[in-house]
């Protein structure tokens, strides 16, 4: 039983990190109906910047995290400006191909020797790992940090979206760009803000991931990116609580599969879920098919 609960905790940690990435997919999809396939690579850049920050440049961890988040926010805005905006009202497939292009560019550009380099790097612990025994369960300080930080970010995001003017503008842009424009919303700016927030979250996810699973490389964003994408689809793409729910489910499924079935089956099962969701509930767990009212 303890073993099971510890696995659930591990799954929660993984799921929360997926949630940080999945939010970016789902928010961006919400405002531009585009799957930003470069999102996982922004996560990777975030992990590297965090690593350089605290392990190479010697910045305090919070400063390193903030640097990664701000830089990636900027990166996200530039990606949208350069690769997606010119194609915004073109057929969807064009932007999708552009997204794949950006993804490959980030991976291979990062692999260059004068950038991050092609090798695996081991991330030193920014603080010693501590194990606590709570009610017979072993809990690490990293798990607690991940839990607190992600929860805090989710609350902030919720406040932003439902309590601020910017958030309201984002929700109107998600419905109809022109209707939002007629209210005086600058749609381009709103989309940029969405990319900035999504990318900053991915960067935070990247740094936390590098601390929890301390090995990074330029292609490390692909798998977590795809898993988070699956999570976003599972929850209902474009729906923010759906992304979190989907991510938590993905985290559990993956961890429990590794623990009780086989760790080799982990990824196969994760993607089998994507296929099943698309077949039987394409709008996701929290998605509804729109009923139109006349």
């Amino acid at each position: 039983m303890e073993h099971f609960l510890e696995q659930v905790l591990n799954g929660l940690q993984l799921g929360l990190m997926y949630a940080l990435i999945a939010l970016g997919y789902t928010m961006v999809y919400g405002v531009v109906q585009l799957i930003n396939f470069a999102h996982g690579d922004v996560f990777m850049v975030g992990a590297f910047l965090g690593y350089f920050g605290f392990a190479v440049w010697g910045l305090p961890l919070p400063v390193a995290i903030l640097t990664a988040m701000v830089t990636c926010a900027l990166l996200g805005v530039i990606i949208e400006r350069v690769a997606y905006r010119p194609l915004r009202y073109a057929p969807k497939i064009a932007a999708l191909i552009s997204a794949i292009g950006v993804s490959l560019f980030l991976e291979y550009f990062s692999s260059l020797k004068f950038v991050f380099g092609p090798n695996y790097r081991v991330v030193p612990r920014p603080f010693p790992e501590v194990h606590w025994e709570i009610a017979g369960l072993s809990v690490t300080n990293i798990q607690v940090i991940v839990f607190v930080v992600v929860l805090l970010m989710l609350i902030l995001l919720q406040l932003l979206i439902y309590r601020t003017k910017t958030g309201m503008a984002m929700r109107t842009v998600a419905v109809d760009h022109n209707a939002a424009r007629l209210m005086g919303v600058n749609v381009d700016t709103t989309i940029s803000i969405t990319f900035a927030i999504g990318s900053a979250f991915a960067a935070l996810g990247g740094v936390l991931y590098a601390i929890a699973y301390p090995q990074i490389h330029p292609f490390m964003g692909i798998m977590p990116g795809l898993k988070a994408f699956t999570a976003a689809v599972l929850g209902g793409i474009g729906i923010i609580p759906g992304a979190v729910l989907g991510a938590l489910i993905m985290g559990q499924i993956e961890t429990l599969t590794s623990a009780y079935i086989s760790s080799q089956l982990r990824d196969a099962i994760a993607f089998a879920i994507l296929i099943l969701v698309l077949l039987f509930r394409p709008t996701g767990l929290l998605g509804r098919t729109e009923t139109e009212k006349v």
Binding site: M168, T172, A174, V175
Partner: peptide, 8 residues
């Protein structure tokens, strides 16, 4: 067609 925001 009104274009109200149904989700708000």
């Amino acid at each position: 067609g009104r274009q109200i925001f149904p989700n708000l």
